[in-house]
């Protein structure tokens, strides 16, 4: 399962190397370091969860991998190529409400192929395949506002995967969903990832989510974010939903809980805002 994989479309899986990376947000006196001196390497096809308290710079790191935020020091590369800007090779799924409200579901999913100049018939066919993969056949002609939160996130995933990215970046994609929908989405995501493998970086503050999904859980400290733990999750795949009740799961959960226990310093509003800020477009 750990061996490098190549997906059905013959596109390679991205190897991510983050070396001594620092990212600062804001300008001049307002500038502050979101992450500092970060070293992470992710093998092709690996599923990595980045876990950390809010305001630890984990979303900023993801923004930098997506190419929306520039790093101020060190290097970020995918397959040896430095990240200089956004690319469909590195798809990103946000928490919520980033589907284009004026496009129907199918047209949302078609966006990437349309940008690559693929003809209408072919791209619609591709979109319908992806929508079937995420279990949304029959909803092609709906507007996003007509779908539930969980369905909207499935469209998001389809819209990103249609570009056959080497890296899939997910920024707390299920945290706005109710618990039941969230656990359904976890199983769906693992199914999709098995069928269309990519290197996957998944940012979350939910310990159980991280342990259930990932091959590896990286825990970050408060700002400026540093790595305090790099944990290999020992459970084999496919993982049954009731794995969360196993003793080993509970043990790892307790360990991560202690690492994440909030220290006295609380996140300021300013830190929260810059954490969720994107680079100017």
């Amino acid at each position: 399962m750990k061996a490098p994989r190549v997906n059905g479309h013959g596109v390679g899986l991205g190897r991510i190397a983050i070396e001594d990376a620092s990212i600062s947000l804001g300008h001049g006196d307002d500038a502050s370091e979101a992450v500092a001196g970060l070293d992470i390497s992710v093998a092709p096809g690996e599923f990595v969860c980045i876990l950390g308290p809010s305001g630890c710079g984990k979303s900023t790191l993801l923004g930098a991998l997506a190419g929306h935020v520039a790093n101020s020091g060190g290097s970020l590369t995918v397959d040896g190529q430095a990240i200089t800007g956004p690319s469909p090779d590195r798809g990103i799924v946000f928490q919520q409400h980033t589907l284009f409200p004026w496009k129907k579901v199918r047209e949302n999913v078609c966006f990437g192929p349309k940008m690559r100049g693929i003809g209408k018939v072919v791209r619609r066919q591709l979109a319908d395949e992806l929508l079937a993969l995420v279990g949304l056949s029959g909803f092609e002609e709906f507007y996003p506002s007509q779908l539930s939160g969980g369905m909207q996130q499935r469209v998001e995933i389809a819209r990103v995967l249609i570009n056959q990215p080497r890296v899939l970046l997910m920024d707390e994609p299920f945290s706005a969903l109710d618990a039941q929908t969230r656990s359904m989405m976890h199983e769906l995501l693992l199914d999709i990832w098995t069928e269309r493998p990519t290197t996957l970086i998944f940012v979350t503050h939910d310990i159980e989510e991280a342990l259930f999904l990932a091959d590896r859980v990286i825990v970050m400290s408060r700002r400026p974010g540093r790595i305090v733990e790099d944990l290999r999750v020992p459970f084999s795949r496919p993982r049954p939903a009731d794995i969360v009740t196993e003793i080993e799961f509970a043990r790892l959960k307790r360990r991560l809980l202690l690492l994440l226990r909030p220290d006295q310093q609380s996140t300021t509003l300013h830190e929260y805002q810059s954490e969720h800020a994107l680079a100017p477009n």
């Binding site: 997506a66 990103i92 990437g112």
Partner: peptide
């Protein structure tokens, strides 16, 4: 216009 929509579009390859 929601900056996250623009960010999404750029990540999907929009010029």
């Amino acid at each position: 216009v929601d900056r996250r929509l623009v960010a999404s579009a750029r990540s999907l390859g929009g010029s």
